[in-house]
């Protein structure tokens, strides 16, 4: 039982970070319908910057977080204005934009490896390594940081989305981009905001997750796959779906590895994703947006 709880809590911490990544994918997707494959590299970069600012340079944690938020917002904005925006303006096909973001992913990954070293980096957890024992269950303090900060970010995102003018504009643009344009919403600016926001969310996810393992310039593709899997399972474009998808995949993977097979754990992720696409292609929470994404 103790080991079960322990496995579940660790899995939930990873799940929470992937929920953030899936959320960042959905934030960008819901206004622009762009599937941004550079998101995994954003998350990787967040982890590497976390190592650089906090572990290597020894800056205070809050400053490191602020710097990462700033850097990642900028990276997201750069990707949007240099790569995605020209294609959107030309009304290029979704797939063409996706391929261009693949190119952006290569550039980010290589630039990171060249600029910050191509080796794995240890990321120092802000609250130390010593596990806290709660009722015989040892829990890493970083698990609390991940789950706590994820909850805080989710509440903030929910507030932004439902209670602010920006949120209203985002929802309008997601519902009907052309209509939103007609009523005076600058969809181009909104897209820029979502890319910056997507960069920040993914970067924070990377910052949070890396002390549980380590930071590496080669993790981007793994992150991207897990994030897209979570987004698909939860429902592409759905914000609550992202959270559910992240947690479900985290748990499924861990329970598979712990109790079923020590070998086919990662396979479970892909199998689950394909299963969802078969049974419920719009994902668990995707129903409301089904019309928009147009099942044939």
């Amino acid at each position: 039982m103790v080991s079960f709880v322990e496995v579940v809590i660790t899995a939930a911490s990873f799940g929470a970070a992937f929920a953030l990544l899936a959320l960042s994918i959905n934030v960008i997707y819901s206004t622009s319908t762009v599937l941004n494959f550079a998101q995994g590299e954003f998350m990787m970069l967040g982890g590497m910057l976390g190592w650089a600012f906090y572990s290597a340079l020894g800056l205070p944690y809050w400053l490191a977080v602020l710097l990462i938020v700033g850097c990642m917002g900028l990276v997201g904005l750069l990707e949007y204005s240099l790569v995605v925006r020209p294609l959107l303006l030309r009304r290029a096909a979704d797939i063409a934009i996706m391929i261009a973001t693949f190119g952006a992913a290569y550039v980010i990954r290589t630039a990171t490896a060249l600029g910050m070293g191509r080796v794995e980096r240890p990321a120092k957890p802000p609250l130390g390594q010593t596990p806290v024992v709660i009722g015989h269950v040892p829990i890493l303090p970083q698990s609390f940081v991940v789950i706590g900060l994820t909850c805080a970010v989710l509440v903030l995102a929910w507030w932004l989305y439902t209670r602010t003018t920006l949120g209203l504009a985002l929802r309008a643009a997601a519902f009907d981009p052309d209509g939103a344009q007609l009523v005076g919403i600058n969809v181009d600016k909104l897209n820029a905001v979502t890319f910056a926001g997507g960069g920040v969310l993914a970067g924070v996810a990377g910052l949070l997750i890396s002390p549980l393992s380590y930071a590496s310039p080669w993790f981007g593709i793994t992150f991207a796959i897990s994030g897209f899997a979570a987004a698909i399972v939860g429902g592409l474009g759905s914000w609550p779906g992202a959270v559910a998808g992240g947690i479900i995949l985290g748990l499924a993977n861990a329970i598979m590895l712990r109790y079923v097979s020590g070998q086919w754990g990662t396979f479970a992720t892909f199998a689950l994703m394909l299963l969802v696409l078969y049974v419920r292609p719009t994902g668990i929470f995707g129903e409301r947006s089904a019309a928009r994404f147009g099942t044939v």
């Binding site: 322990e6 496995v7 660790t10 899995a11 990873f14 393992s213 598979m256 590895l257 712990r258 020590g262």
Partner: peptide, 9 residues
């Protein structure tokens, strides 16, 4: 993989 917790368990 980011976590070998399940295997270690």
């Amino acid at each position: 993989s980011l976590d070998y917790g399940p295997q270690v368990s």
